[in-house]
Nucleic acid binder design. Structure first.
Length: 634
RNA sequence: GUCCCCAUCGUCUAGUCCGGCCAAGGACGUGGGCCUUUCAAGCCUAAAACACGGGUUCGAAUCCCGUUGGGGACGCCA
């Protein structure tokens, strides 16, 4: 796939990439109200295209496999869907992945309460839509009762585009395409303080670079828009109102100070840390009084103390949580914006998401989401929790221990197809053991239940080997093409201004621009990083001090957006005032870290050219190098 | 601390559901060798793992229980 185009999956909204267009039939209408969210049936002809995958885990059957099918039992047509509907809601042990009920939860008690859906079976999504709850914009992808598979990636625009986002996006995209469905991009910018448009743009750019096309999103629109949560606040407000009205949520007037004190106390007492429900007991009058006197408040989700809430994870089976362990989550912040929990449930419902495929870190808040679906009277989507990418020390992947920005990998010349392939190797494997493969190969046998649930370490050595494989496959002409795109005219023009005054001959351009254009590893030395040269002579700084400076600068630069010489200078300047560090003390090691040279064009200009993701990575790399190479003597 | 998830070479993994074909296979990395003016690539080769303890069974990497270890969550972040 690599040779044909840099991004084999063209961005073709509503049509899917050419290589991925396996099934594009219209959404199938099911005539059975009340079961809109039954595992959607596989299309006619699906079996021809894709022989049934072998499902290792009973509880993780593909959409369309009913209980009976999973167990290899006959299923009389009439009963079949109803039974499946029940099973979706019941904490029934048969749905578990393991052959025999593996009871979870404390003391191995079989969960009995908590999942309330089965009795008053909530109206299916179709019914809800008919009542006028269809997404803004009217158009209906999800016709009543439609079973078209819809997945989404919902990044938060609060920083660099994250490799974990790409990982989750990959599997969402594959799952949707495998089942002939839609893959939606939604921007979760409900954190007013940290969200930025620059970050959002960078995320869209990187996802496009990755070659994972979405069918609906903030840039291309779609029938369920807007796809930016900050533009949907009215929707959340209405929904919060509904919960307040039906008593599943309540207003909380507690101050931040009270909450902090409460948390501190609970920590000291070593009990579980959660809200004590004080405002739950507030009388209507008390609430009215506080409201009229202008107190700010948040809306919290009420959770009964008794019982158990069961989350059915498609990859893990049933997971039960004692309700008393679950906090009364804030749903609406005092700024009127929703928290992730509310926005995500409301949007997933309104956008007719059938399968929530997200990172494992969400497992523990899923019972809150389950409760929210119940509180609204909606049927929940299927949940699939992906393992977390890890650092070499097996902690959750983080920028402090690993470059995590997609922009970084693009800048250092990782090919998007290699990145996709590599991410596809994280926790996943093809049945035949192939390791070099493209999206079409992945799709052919794609089955989420093949995922290895242990968190995979993101191993750059293997990524670079894979990238080399792809480069070799390019051949000389392909390589020339790619390099031309990599050193694009625009990119050269960024570098030209700082070099134009410093060249005697054109051939000096390449060596002088190497650290500006490339992203690769720099060779650090103690002399470079620790020597502070001035008129007074040479002074050696302490490695620990320089390490700290480098780390603090990297940290400060994390949030700088847009990335320009001026903004970088301002941020570094501010850091210096805050810490009392002298500029010269800071700038010299920063220059060394970022360029591995003693002399360069003006520091902030070259940093702007090098790019934020690479600068931050180099600062951290240099700091790490210093820690790993303590200066013994001289 | 509480709750939850996970557990095969240093790393990515196959095998686990349906126990015997596994004295555990492949890949990255590492060591050695071949090829080659050199390097890379390629080829050959070596070292390298079923966390531990019980149980079930004729038989356990695979099923059950426990322990240990790792991770995540416990925000008016997502």
């Amino acid at each position: 796939m690599g040779q044909r185009a840099p991004a084999p999956l063209r961005h073709q909204p509503r049509r899917g990439g050419a290589h991925l267009r396996l099934q594009q039939e219209p959404a199938v209408r099911r005539g059975l109200p009340g079961h809109a969210l039954d595992p959607p049936p596989l299309r006619q002809g699906h079996q021809r295209l894709h022989p049934p995958a072998q499902h290792r885990r009973a509880g993780a059957a593909p959409p369309g496999a009913t209980h009976g099918e999973r167990r290899g039992l006959p299923h009389p047509g009439g009963q079949r869907r109803a039974r499946a509907g029940e099973l979706r809601a019941l904490p029934a042990p048969h749905r578990q992945r393991r052959p025999r009920p593996r009871l979870r939860g404390p003391r191995g008690h079989r969960p009995r309460q908590g999942v309330r859906a089965p009795r008053a079976h909530p109206p299916g999504r179709g019914a809800a839509h008919r009542r006028g709850e269809e997404p803004r914009g009217g158009l209906s992808v999800s016709a009543p009762g439609a079973a078209r598979i819809r997945t989404r990636i919902a990044p938060s625009p609060t920083g660099d585009p994250h490799v974990g986002t790409a990982y989750v996006a990959l599997f969402n995209c594959l799952y949707a395409k495998k089942h002939g469905g839609d893959f939606i991009l939604r921007i979760e910018d409900t954190d007013q303080v940290r969200s930025t448009r620059e970050s959002e743009a960078a995320i869209l750019r990187s996802l496009t670079w990755m070659g994972l096309p979405w069918d609906e999103g903030p840039d291309i629109g779609g029938p369920c828009g807007p796809y930016r949560q900050s533009e949907r606040t009215e929707i959340y407000r209405e929904h919060a109102e509904r919960l307040l009205a039906n008593g599943t949520a309540y207003r909380c007037f507690c101050t931040g100070e009270r909450l902090d004190a409460l948390r501190a106390q609970q920590l000291a007492e070593k009990t579980s840390v959660q809200y004590d429900g004080a405002c739950r007991a507030l009388s209507t009058e008390a609430v009215r009084e506080r409201l009229s006197s202008g107190h700010t408040f948040v809306v919290r989700l009420d959770f009964p103390r008794d019982g158990v809430t069961v989350v059915n994870d498609q990859l893990r089976g049933n997971i039960s949580f004692e309700n008393k362990q679950i906090d009364h989550q804030v749903l609406m912040k005092s700024d009127g914006f929703p928290t992730y929990h509310l926005a995500n449930v409301v949007d997933d419902h309104l956008m007719a998401i059938t399968d929530v495929i997200r990172a494992e870190e969400w497992i523990s808040s899923t019972p809150k989401h389950v409760r929210l679906y119940e509180a609204f009277g909606w049927e929940a989507p299927r949940f699939h929790h992906l393992p977390l990418l890890r650092n070499a020390d097996r902690s959750k992947i983080s920028k402090r221990k690993n470059p995590v920005s997609l922009d970084y990998y693009e800048r250092i010349g990782v090919l998007p197809e290699a990145m996709r392939n590599f991410l596809g190797l994280m926790g996943y494997s093809l049945p035949d053991g192939r390791e070099v493969f493209g999206l079409p190969d992945l799709l052919e046998s794609f089955d989420l239940t093949r995922l290895n649930l242990a968190g995979p370490v993101f191993d750059r050595a293997k990524l670079e080997w894979l990238n080399g494989e792809y480069i070799r496959k390019l051949g000389p002409e392909g390589l020339a093409d790619r390099v031309r795109a990599y050193f694009s005219p625009e990119r050269l023009l960024e570098v030209a201004p700082v070099l134009v005054e410093r060249l005697a001959r054109l051939d000096e351009f390449a060596p002088m621009a190497s650290y500006l254009l490339g992203g690769g590893h720099l060779a650090y030395t103690h002399e470079l990083l620790l020597c502070q040269k001035s008129r007074k002579g040479v002074e050696w700084a302490e490695a620990t001090e320089i390490t700290e400076i480098l780390q603090r600068v990297a940290e400060t630069l994390d949030t700088v957006r847009p990335w320009t010489a001026a903004t970088i200078e301002a941020a570094v300047g501010q850091l210096c005032t805050e810490t009392g560090w002298k500029k010269g003390r800071v700038l010299s090691p920063v220059r060394a870290a970022v360029s591995a040279r003693e002399a360069t064009p003006p520091l902030f200009e070259i940093m702007a050219i090098i790019g934020g993701s690479v600068c931050r990575a180099r600062l951290r790399e240099a700091a790490e190098w210093l820690q790993a190479h303590p200066r013994t003597s001289s």
